[in-house]
Structure formats: structure tokens, C-alpha cells
Amino acid sequence: MKKLKKNTPLERLWNGIIKENPTFILMLGMCPTLAVTTSAINGVGMGLSTAAVLVMSNLVISLLRKIIPGQVRMPAYIVIVASFVTIIEMLLHAFVTPVYDSLGIFIPLIVVNCIILGRAEAYASKNKVIPSIFDGLGMGLGFTLALTLIGMLREFLGAGTLFGMQVIPDVIPPIAIFVLAPGAFFVLACLTALQNKLNAPSATNKPEAEASLACGGDCSKCAGTCGAGNHRAVILDAATKKEAADREKAAAAKAAAEKKAAAKKAEAAAQNSPVAKTEQGGDSHE
């Protein structure tokens, strides 16, 4: 992947969907992630509703970023987000009633989704309008993708269907627990364990970031900055990894140089006297 220029629309989309995926990398918005992913279609519905709210709220907050006074920014953001959530709720109720019915109380609860306030605080309040819109879109699509994946997995295991279509024949009974509450925990546990195993970047798989588990541990900042907190953890991780690699490289180079020098010295010593040779043999024994 070649380096994209910072804050361009494409870079923001890539960032939201892959690099800083809100569910898998930043571990934000756990409640809807676990609650509504009983089927793939629910995941899509929830993801897209959140994405719509995220785009609109990022747009408005970015437009108002110089007008909203710093001390009252959180209440202002909450009211802006709540307004858009209400609009989305009414639209869903009017046009896609089945989705509205199956998502239930989790539509109004989009207001308290950490991702939205997190992005408002960490990105939209500091950046221009166009990148903010694409930031919202990228994060929203990343969230949708994650919810759809988890939903598909749970639906496949728990009901033997995908998007409502039968995949596993009736002869094999589905493992019903995966569409029930405990299944959500198990699926996410396995996914995060896999992530740890593959050593993929995540805000939660390192000791120093454990304090900021999900959005909870770092809760003192959770009134919106939790996104920034987890973001910091991921960036820090990348930085320490790079540093370690650099150090290793430097050490390797140094070691090679030393080896070379030692070899040269030994050669010279061997030519000079046989005593040195025996001495060296003793050294290597030790």
C-alpha cells in the first residue's frame, strides 16, 4: 500500500475502514456491536444508521468548530448528535419498519455510541469540512463492515443462514447459542484472541493499553475523548514497534561490524604469534 497523503478523502476512508477500524482496532461501540449482530442484515442496518449519523454530525461539528466555545463543547456535540439520531430514527420508522423493529432501543442509543463523540472530539473539531465528512464516512463504513462480518458469523453458526437464505441443510442442527446473548461474547472473544495471536494492531492487546480497555478503562476521558485515547494507544504501539525494529537493525549492524573487526584482529593475531591463537581458543570455550 503506497502512502496516501494525509487528510485527503481517500486516506480518510482507508483509515476508517482498515487502519483504524472502530470495532476491531479501536474497540469502540461495543454495546451495539454485541447487541444487534444476531443476523447479518441487522448488522448492516445498524452500521449504516450509525454511519449516516456520523457523517452528518461530523459535517455540522466541523462547520461549527470555531463557533462552539471550548467549555461547553461536549453538551453541544451531544445535542447535535441526538438531533441527527432522532431524524434517522424517524426515517427508519417510516421507510424500513422491519429494521426499525429489530434494532429497537439501540437506534436512540446511537447517541451514546463512543465512536460518534470520539470522532467529533478527535477529528471533526480540529479539521476542515471535507476531510471530516470522509472521516465520518470511513469510520461508519468500517463499523458497518465489522458489524456485518460478526452478524454473518453469528447467523451462519447460530441459524445456518446468511442474509436470511438457508446455507446449512436442515439435517445439521444449528448451534442456537450463537444467536443468543452468550454467543455474542464468545464470537467477539474468539475474534479478539485471533487478533492477539496474529499480533494485529489493536488498542487492547498490549499491557499499557489494557487500562483503556474497550472505551471503559480510560473512562475518565470517556466523555468523548475515548476515541482519542485508544487512537493514542494504537499510534504509540506503532511507534514503539518501529523504534524496536530500528534498534534491532542498529544492533545487528553494530554486531556485524564488531564481528568483522574481531575476525580481522584474530587473523592479525594468528599471523603474529601462536600464543594468541591458543588464548582465543580458550575464549571460545568459555
Binding site: M30, C31, A35, A184, S212, A214, C219
Partner: peptide, 12 residues
């Protein structure tokens, strides 16, 4: 069973 308040539940 309702999946609300997971953040403090997992974090604190």
C-alpha cells in the same frame, strides 16, 4: 442480556 453499559463492565 440487554448489552447495555458494556464499556464500564469490561473496563472498570
Amino acid at each position: 442480556s440487554q448489552f447495555m453499559g458494556l464499556c464500564p463492565f469490561l473496563g472498570v
